[in-house]
């Protein structure tokens, strides 16, 4: 459902993403790992058609991100890293705005809201202004925004960052529940999360893919915990072929 070919993007002299290619199929949850500044967010922004790649392209649900960005945005749900929201709006107004923009109307809108609001447990803050919410609630509102049109592809940039352990658990459950019918990319620093939700992991560093494997295989191969695997791979200068 997602196929990426040779994506490349630099900011001035810094090469953020350097020829990344991979495919993700329906039913897969891809854990996108890497140290800070590895280019995870940049790849995700390019997939969400927010940043234009310098070269290379990607297709999501058969739509090219360069030729058909609006179609791509219609079929993905994208949660950005710092969860930008319109702070002066109430949660309800905000979700209604997203429905407007995504052209969800009438009965469909009621159905989507009835589905997504309990799913992200934001009923209690529905009429509250977003700027008065705690970080955890803001993130859940952001998650509701990404799920409102029931997208086939989800791109979540550090979805559990700033959540308390219970909320983290809930988000992971949510991802697990959806994993069957959807194609999901999750970026994260938290390695236990990879164990909990991902069926596949890609580790990138300095814009290049170092490893494309499954969490299980990685652990077997290196015979240690994922933490140590991550450290070994991203610190080593010469990488053994996997």
């Amino acid at each position: 459902m997602i196929s990426i070919t040779e994506l490349r993007r630099s900011f001035g002299p810094i090469v953020a993403v350097d020829g990344v290619s991979f495919n993700v199929e329906k039913g897969q949850v891809l854990g996108f790992l890497g140290p800070n500044g590895a280019g995870k967010s940049t790849v995700m922004k390019m997939l969400a058609c927010f940043l234009r790649p310098d070269s290379g392209t990607a297709a999501i649900c058969g739509n090219d991100i360069l030729k058909n960005p609006i179609k791509v945005r219609q079929c993905i749900g994208y949660l950005a890293e710092n969860v930008p929201l319109y702070n002066e709006m109430t949660v309800g107004d905000f979700l209604n705005f997203v429905c407007d923009a995504r052209n969800i109307r009438g009965k469909d809108r009621k159905k989507s809201l009835d589905r997504v609001v309990p799913m992200c447990s934001i009923e209690s803050v529905y009429h509250q202004t977003i700027e008065t919410l705690s970080k955890g609630y803001k993130r859940r509102v952001g998650l509701a925004q990404t799920l409102i049109h029931d997208p086939e592809v989800l791109i979540l940039d550090e979805p559990t960052d700033g959540l308390d352990p219970n909320q983290k658990h809930e988000v992971r459950d949510l991802i697990n529940k959806m994993s069957q019918e959807k194609c999901i990319i999750v970026s994260t620093h938290i390695l236990e999360e990879v164990d909990a939700v991902c069926s596949r992991t890609i580790i990138i560093s300095r814009g290049k893919i170092l490893v494309d494997s499954t969490p299980k295989k990685l652990k077997e191969q290196y015979k240690c915990s994922l933490d140590e695997v991550f450290r070994k791979i991203t610190r080593a200068k010469q990488i053994k072929p996997v």
């Binding site: 922004k45 969400a48 058609c49 927010f50 609006i70 945005r73 219609q74 994208y78 950005a80 710092n82 930008p84 929201l85 319109y86 702070n87 997203v98 923009a101 995504r102 052209n103 925004q145």
Partner: peptide, 14 residues
């Protein structure tokens, strides 16, 4: 500045 542009322009809005 707030970053909400990333939300706005990743919705299906040109």
């Amino acid at each position: 500045r707030v970053g909400s542009i990333e939300l706005l322009l990743t919705l299906p809005i040109t």
